[in-house]
Write a protein that binds this DNA or RNA. Structure first.
Lengths: 201, 201
DNA sequence: CGGCGTTTTGAGAGAGCTCAACATCGGTGG
DNA sequence: CCACCGATGTTGAGCTCTCTCAAAACGCCG
């Protein structure tokens, strides 16, 4: 989940200046549903669970934010948080106060543009990942990922983390991913190199 | 796919004024990868496929936009389109010229805010739908959907389209959805009414 | 070297998918 | 008013594919 190809260059110097870091112990709540919104966050280290709790106390997970992810962007435009944010591991988050951000957005057109562009790219990225999950066959899903993440030459895919991480992003078990890659290589559809995969055919 | 709970109130009167409708025959291309961006679109009627075509001519679907969906938002911040938009059925799209939108955004802070808020809400919605797809069990996935879409009372879910549509949104076959709902009703977890589902327990 | 996490391969079971038949509902036209 | 038609809704049976549990090889770092 933490592998958004969506970079975070929306941080103008002025925005970066208002950033405040905060540490959280595992299980600690950052904010709760109904609380007044104070700003948005970025995960520096650790992992947070965004959950909505229904009347019966059951939780529905909205998102799991990991290192590098931002969350609660919508809090900028809403008076109260609409879910709970709970650290599932000891974590560090960077806080960006709502007022400072909105002020900067009003003063600096570049900052708004950068932030909007970041959101638009994230929407695009999320839509394609959702589309990917509509592909049932493991092989086709892996191919979809590879084709979409090929570099400039259209034939080389750089692997960022471990294959286990990739399996999680693809919504497959790591065993299935290993087997699928092995089969694709055996069939001559891909070539597996150190840290990269080359598309053939 | 077309059931974003994300309303489109980002349309200020000034924005609505620059809207231009265009008709497309099935199979017709609206824009192609590499073309200069002219603006973003909204599907009024029909269905469009956003695809990226790799060097070997294989397509990878990025998104399927249906009535009510907007797409190519990122074109506002990019010089060229990064995928093809092809109508898969006779369609009507509304076109919002990039220049007019960006101009309006500069003049009218309300318009920027509304547009950013819409994007932020869409990011939230997409993230939760992606999280939903991580749930393997059909029953848990359906429950996740119901819990997240319950009305103000937290117990009543209004069904917008057909159950077939819902099955597609959940990434299940309609048969499995029917069976799952029947089981949940038999177990007393839900009550099925006309056009709505009531959560029990 | 020893330990830990990743990578790999094996075998089995379960859940959802597919194909198929049928019921139900809403609209259309005779 | 009723027969017809298409799409939605429903249930059944079998199959495939992925998930799960298990075990072992590999690589990396102290």
């Amino acid at each position: 989940m933490g592998s958004e190809a969506v970079a975070r260059e929306w941080l103008s110097p002025a925005v970066r200046a208002v950033r405040v870091e905060r540490m959280l112990k595992a299980g600690e709540a950052l904010f709760l549903q109904g609380h007044r919104t104070t700003g948005l966050y970025e995960v520096v280290r650790g992992k947070l669970r965004l959950v909505r709790v229904d009347h019966a106390g059951r939780e529905a997970v909205l998102h799991v934010a990991e290192a590098g992810d931002t969350f609660a962007e919508a809090s900028l435009f809403s008076p109260t948080y609409r879910c709970d944010a709970i650290a599932t591991a000891d974590s560090v988050v960077a806080f960006y106060p709502k007022g400072a951000l909105l002020g900067e957005f009003q003063r600096n057109p570049k900052a708004v543009q950068a932030f909007m562009a970041m959101l638009a790219r994230q929407v695009m990225s999320l839509r394609s990942r959702l589309e990917q999950r509509n592909i049932h066959s493991a092989r086709d899903r892996v191919w979809h990922y590879l084709a979409l993440n090929a570099g400039a030459d259209g034939r080389t895919v750089a692997l960022i983390g471990t294959l286990k991480d990739l399996a999680a992003e693809l919504g497959l078990t790591h065993e299935v991913l290993y087997r699928t890659l092995a089969n694709m290589a055996a069939d001559g559809d891909i070539e597996r190199l150190k840290g990269t995969i080359k598309l053939l055919g």
